[in-house]
Design a binder for these strands. Structure first.
Lengths: 210, 210, 210, 210
DNA sequence: AAATAATCGAGACGGTACGTCTGGTCTTACC
DNA sequence: GGTAAGACCAGACGTACCGTCTCGATTATTT
């Protein structure tokens, strides 16, 4: 009982104050943007949220899960797939949208949260389940529509496909060895779709697709 | 003179004790492996190296640059390009070697150092200059040999090419959403080289190419 | 609020732990006796008291005020005036008692605290208010009784009188140029009371005066 | 041999650099005035004197003896006895001169040096031999002249006499519980000379003496 | 209505590590 | 051999947060 776990149910007693919860998440998100995860402190959050440290520790095990929840709450709404008739164009639009997001502070924070997950299994799991997997699932659906329409090979593991598309985006986001701009992402998608090797076929734009 | 910067030159006075320097770097590398960057402490390093804290602060601004230097000193020798007649095979071998390294603790530490670079420009610069850029330079040379031999397209920015190949490796190293094993890397290289889209050509390519 | 001042009142929050306070004062007094103020360290006190350094800094600005409070707490009870019918004998007894105390470690510590007060106004004030003034007040009352009984001149500032009596005691305590023994103190009192100059009268004074 | 003792004689090698010695003493005296003994640091002295720390440690065991020597060098010349035909007036003039000196920074420093002597026997000895004893010797001579002239009692230990005169001065210098001004010193001398008790004789100013 | 129970704020507590300062020692090159 | 420069080990400094622990006050449900 000593580790303060989030209560599953509490039938009696004073109910959880949702205003405090919101204030904490908000303060965390703000500070995360302002100073980054590295310099985030529970005391700072408590002060900014006008809340006692106890209240934070009561509901979140550690800085990581709190930061993560705050991050997810703030960022998740900003990325969503559109769904049109042309799956590859959907994909291209979505990747561009992600790229734009990752260029900024969101990318910086995300990177810190990933690093955090290296040491703490729970943070890692939460990051995957709460952020990565849902987005990959949507992306898979998009790719499957493309396969169904016969514009993509059907002999490759979807997970590998997605890695090939998103991997380089994350790579540049984290290493920052070059710009993560529209042109780069476009070139990258071309490469992923048509390969590096010399071949008779190019991306000859099936008439009407582009 | 109050900010303790690494001296550029010191013609007089007691010279720097290289034994202490080595001990510090060694202790740092060991602790980095043992507990990760997150739980690395200067006090711990000083104790393990048998050195005063001041000696550390005299030569390294902060934990980041020290950890980075220790990391580079320890890891750099472990990755090198072979050079044979078949550049694409060189590439494949090298990527597999990198993949193997990133599967383990090295990957975990690297990921923390990257996150660190998000907030501190100097750490970021040092990571790029000391680690990433040299490796990319070698990789570029390899790709250029392949282009010269006519097995790779010559109309694509080399930086984008390299991103397409290495990006997904790093992606999996950091997110750990799937195994970073030999089969994955092989599949990834095939994809990068031949593309996702449906084409008459497949990898066991035109006779005589391999 | 950044300078950690002793709180005036705290209506809310966890109340101050008096056990910790006592332990700190006790440890300080002990170490003061053992090693003197010069080698007193907050870390040492914290360790001996089984207390965190922060707890000390929370309630005492610096080593000086802590040492002083510990000193006063430990020493004050040891000196008190007796009150008999013969004020001059009361005085003589009290001065001898003080002399005995100052011969030992108490004197040594007191001397260090006085030196400390030279640089820090607050320490100085606290030393005067907490130690010196109360004792001088009592001594004044004693002298006034003597004056009322007609055995002491009534035309001299009481403060000067007291200085004349106690000054030489402190002088020898601090300079240690000679013994601070019973004989010395007796001789001193005779001198103070009857003067240095040649006069017909000697201490076993005119009949009827005592 | 490890404790660096001041060399007694050095028949060979480079002779001691007196310029360095002077610079060190001067810097020490200056810093002593400026920040007091408590915040005096060897590093500061070395920096201000343009001298290596080694050079200081070679010639002085510790901060105390250095500070003391610097103090004596700077202060000694400021106090000297005059010698006239009226010993008691000489005394009065000298005590006033001492009082004036002790009112200022000299007193503050002196007090710190005395405290220092509580813990370190050598410092204490040096303070007595170098400062106190010579001054007391001169004062004794003065008193003896007064005794020879028949204006002072000859049945009292000279040491006690001197304590009775100088003790209260030091007392006020160190405790600062009241002003150390001309009037105070005058009153004090009267008291010391003529006593506190009621007697037919007052200081009736032997004609021509005052 | 009272009792019970969990929440909340405030803030003290024992700790760990921080980055700095100074004390003394040593090592080197120069004079 | 003395000296300036400065690196070295050692250890205390005062601060920032950590995660835990009382408190008194508040807000519900259950008797």
């Amino acid at each position: 009982m000593s580790p303060p776990k989030p209560r599953a149910t509490a039938t009696t007693g004073r109910p959880r104050d949702d205003a405090a919860r919101q204030a904490i998440l908000r303060a965390t998100a703000d500070l995360l943007e302002e100073v980054g995860f590295g310099k985030l402190s529970i005391e700072g959050i408590a002060a900014q949220a006008g809340v006692a440290k106890t209240t934070i520790y009561r509901w979140w095990h550690n800085k990581g899960v709190l930061a993560l929840e705050a991050f997810l709450t703030a960022v998740s709404p900003k990325i969503a797939f559109t769904e049109t008739a042309a799956p590859l164009e959907d994909l291209r639009a979505q990747v561009q949208r992600v790229g734009k997001l990752y260029r900024g502070k969101t990318g910086r924070i995300l990177c810190e949260l990933i690093a955090l997950g290296q040491a703490d299994a729970e943070t890692h799991r939460q990051l995957l389940d709460g952020y990565l997997t849902p987005r990959r699932t949507v992306a898979k659906a998009c790719l499957q529509r493309a396969i169904a329409q016969g514009v993509l090979r059907d002999d490759i593991d979807l997970n590998v496909m997605i890695d090939a598309i998103y991997g380089p985006i994350w790579y540049r986001m984290m290493l920052r060895h070059g710009p993560l701009d529209v042109a780069y992402i476009d070139a990258l998608l071309d490469l992923a779709l048509y390969g590096l090797t010399i071949s008779p076929r190019r991306r000859p734009c099936p008439p009407g697709q582009r």
